[in-house]
Design a protein around this nucleic acid. Structure first.
Length: 776
DNA sequence: AACCTGACTTAGTATACCCCAC
DNA sequence: GTGGGGTATACTAAGTCAGGTT
């Protein structure tokens, strides 16, 4: 992994020379058991959670707590080294202000209204499509892109002014669907052949066509803080009531069957269902479960059930396994019936009306009761998550609207009308006391607008990041300890895309950290390592207990600072003892409006995608090769952000299958080439029309096979490189979709190859507004 | 400034579902 | 028609960050 900063004055983590998968692989080698199959009990997560093997060792929660207290009081007592004037970035701010205001601006409505009619017409036409029509459409789309490109060459103005770029895009759109071809025939053919999933697409489009799409991005935004004027919904859909176990299914204690009270039995089924899960092998899980379970028992039961290991849930477990299998084996009509019912529920509860538009809700069901599945070494795992009752639920809707009816015999905790928030209903969960919300789907206006804004802020950062970097580099030498720590932390956040790292309550959650909460034990300093100087070895558990392991050569001054920060500290002490996320974010806010630590992650992710796409895409490649380039660029971002996944259980097998396919194809190609040779000879001797036609046919066959083989090989490469990396998270949350849309348009790749249906819905705004010239 | 809480985004995993090869 | 594999979706935990209170 080359995290070396040479040739990159800002120490930006993007644009690396070496394959980007190395970091993860390095971590993985240490993390993963040699053979998962041999040792099924050892999951990735478990291995990740084993204490970090640092000389310093890990620190207990109590010790950390003690130290933290000391840190806080110590920091208060100690005066700053030198009282320098506070960081002044008003210039940067002033510069940025303009940009940001622009970003928030909204287009003139008149212009829009004029064009609305045409849009509607277009939509109507495209409602139901045949396969041929779809293929034709792709060609036309490509032709349009060519037209757009030609226009660009002629000097047409590109629209890239962020949230204001609508007008120009509209103009482009019209052109993009009408003008005749720019592509050569062979390329058109290629595109046609490669888009095999036309049937699937048609189905998707039919579904999409049903809903009339609301182009909220062409409308005015609400005044500051107001999220809606009108909101009406059906309230949450409650988890089904508990059903008693059938007679023949029993819980056993100490080998003897035992009838349990309904509440006790229900909780027992939660555990029984998880019997073949790793959780039930964890001591904390068992302890927490037993503790909460006994609390729910009747006094009679409590007297009898004293030890968990005398409890036998196996019969209950088997019952649920069988029931699930029976469910799967249900006759078609029964399955249809169930599906219909699910659809009905979705129809009734899954949508709301917001400002006159029907929008999909993200999660309209309350979370069912069960056992808490905290990740990593969560101290509360196994605790009983209580059933949510209407009496726990707060409903949020507009005043004049139809207030949802609670289930018969129940009432809501509260009905309120607060249009400064986006949630429709909420309740407080019993494990951590956190509030859970029912909110809209990502395709909704409320979510989409926020998403769009997020990328606009990240784009603003692009304009000032140079200054910010210059400043934090200068601050590395500050006489103020606070500033030094802040500047080094910011360097890490920028260069390594670390999360901010809020303080967490000790003992309440798994011990994970981010930048500001790094402890001395999470870093090791190597003045020299593998021929590189000033190498910092990071090894800590981040969000969701995903291990972050990285060897990073840093600049000399950073290295020196780290030595200074670590001086006279124990392994469990905070590295940045004078820094918190709130002071860091306050500082960032001064540098640029809207800037917070996480914006760096968004910015660096998106800029990395853009740069990698530019570097990796070859215009002459076929679609499969271009997709590999895209995935590689996406992968670079996923690695930067440390988005990992467990290697899919079926990985090895499916890899073998793919390899087998490749081998078959190779053989076929070999045969086809032989036949081609024969046909050539035949043609030379006979010299008639028939043999010439045969030759042509053979030639085409070989070409086709070659193409197919190449596609398979690319697929295999992609798969292998993607083994432990999760691309979805960055695609969904960090990459400005307009970069992908522009790339698709520029390189004639159908957007469906990059975004699936859900993603297209979420990014509808970007797909509609970005043209091929969009630059992040 | 610390602390707490609410609102919202980001995250990995479990499961449902669909399609293709047989 | 079926089973398996792969993708899409559902689910909910775990973060970030801001604003109010002490």
């Amino acid at each position: 992994m080359d995290f070396v900063t040479e040739g990159n004055s800002h120490g930006v983590p993007h644009l690396r020379e070496e394959p980007l998968a190395k970091k993860v692989r390095l971590g993985a080698e240490e993390r993963l058991p040699a053979s998962r199959d041999e040792n099924k009990a050892v999951t990735r997560r478990q291995v990740q959670n084993t204490p970090l093997c640092l000389e310093t060792g890990s620190t207990s929660a109590e010790e950390r707590k003690r130290r933290k207290k000391r840190k806080v009081s110590g920091a208060k007592a100690e005066t700053e080294e030198v009282g320098e004037s506070p960081g002044n970035c008003s210039k940067a701010r002033a510069l940025e202000q303009e940009n940001l205001n622009g970003a928030k601006g909204v287009e003139e409505k008149v212009e829009r209204d004029k064009e609305e009619g045409e849009g509607a017409e277009e939509k109507e036409k495209s409602e139901v499509k045949t396969e041929q029509e779809l293929d034709r459409e792709i060609e036309v789309q490509k032709e349009g892109v060519g037209e757009a490109r030609r226009k660009k060459v002629q000097g047409e103005e590109a629209s890239e002014d962020g949230m204001r770029g609508k007008k120009a895009n509209k103009g482009r759109k019209k052109g993009a669907t009408s003008k005749p071809g720019c592509l050569g025939d062979s390329r058109k053919r290629k595109a046609k052949e490669e888009d095999g999933g036309a049937r699937k697409k048609r189905k998707e489009e039919e579904e999409c066509g049903k809903e009339d799409k609301w182009k909220w991005w062409e409308e005015e935004q609400h005044a500051n803080g107001v999220k809606w004027q009108q909101l009406e919904h059906r309230g949450p859909y409650f988890a089904p009531a508990y059903e008693r176990l059938p007679r023949g299914v029993s819980f056993y204690y100490n080998g003897k069957p035992m009838k349990l009270s309904p509440a006790t039995e229900e909780i027992a089924t939660f555990y029984a269902k998880m019997l073949d899960h790793d959780y039930t092998r964890k001591a904390i899980f068992k302890k927490n479960f037993f503790c909460d379970w006994t609390e729910q028992m009747t006094s009679e039961e409590r007297k009898k059930i004293k030890q968990l290991d005398k409890c036998d849930f196996r019969e209950i477990h088997e019952y649920f396994v069988e029931r699930q299998e029976a469910q799967k084996a249900l006759p078609k009509e029964e399955k249809q019936k169930l599906k219909k019912e699910a659809e009905r529920i979705q129809e009734e509860y899954g949508y709301c009306t917001i400002d006159g538009h029907r929008e999909k809700i993200g999660n309209f069901k309350t979370e069912p009761p069960g056992l808490f599945r905290g990740r990593g070494d969560h101290p509360k795992m196994g605790r009983v998550k209580k059933r949510i009752m209407p009496e726990d639920v707060i409903i949020n809707c507009s005043k004049g609207s139809k207030i949802p009816k609670p289930p018969p015999g129940h009432k809501w905790k509260e009905v309120r009308c607060d249009n400064s928030v986006t949630w429709l209903a909420s309740w407080t969960e019993n494990i951590n006391g956190a509030i859970k919300y029912i909110m809209l789907n990502p395709s909704s206006k409320l979510k989409g607008e926020k998403d769009w804004q997020k990328y606009e802020i990240a784009r603003c950062l692009k304009g000032v990041v140079g200054k910010i970097r210059a400043q934090y580099r200068a601050d590395w030498k500050s006489k103020e300890m606070k500033k030094r720590q802040r500047s080094v932390a910011l360097y890490f956040i920028d260069k390594l895309a670390l999360r901010a790292g809020n303080e967490k309550e000790e003992g309440e959650t798994a011990d994970t950290v981010g930048c500001c909460s790094l402890r001395v034990e999470h870093l090791r300093l190597h003045p020299r390592m593998d021929g590189k100087e000033n190498v910092v070895e990071f090894d800590f558990l981040g969000k969701d207990c995903i291990r972050y392991y990285n060897l990073v050569p840093v600049e000399k001054q950073v290295f020196k600072n780290l030595q200074l920060f670590m001086e006279n500290k124990g392994p469990g002490d905070d590295l940045f003892d004078r820094l918190s996320t709130s002071t860091l974010n306050k500082h960032l806010q001064d540098l640029m409006e809207g800037l917070t630590a996480k914006v760096f992650r968004t910015y660096n992710a998106s800029i990395t995608l853009q740069e990698q796409l530019d570097a990796l895409t070859n215009e002459d490649d076929n679609v499969a090769a271009k997709l590999l380039s895209y995935n590689r660029a996406n992968r670079a971002v996923a690695i930067l952000c440390n988005h990992q996944r467990a290697t899919p259980k079926t990985f090895e097998k499916s890899m073998q299958n793919l390899q087998a396919k490749i081998n078959v194809k190779r053989d076929q190609l070999c045969d086809a080439k032989l036949e081609l040779k024969k046909a050539k000879a035949d043609c030379r001797t006979k010299r008639d029309v028939k043999s010439k036609a045969a030759l042509e046919k053979k030639q085409k066959h070989v070409e086709k096979l070659e193409e197919q083989l190449e596609k398979l090989v690319l697929q295999a490469t992609d798969k292998e490189e993607n083994k432990q990396i999760a691309l979805g998270t960055s695609k969904l949350n960090y990459l400005d979709p307009r970069i992908s849309v522009a790339w698709c348009k520029r390189f004639c790749v159908p957007i469906e190859k990059i975004f699936n249906k859900t993603q297209r819905e979420k990014f509808a705004w970007a797909i509609d507004m970005a043209d091929e010239d969009f630059v992040f």
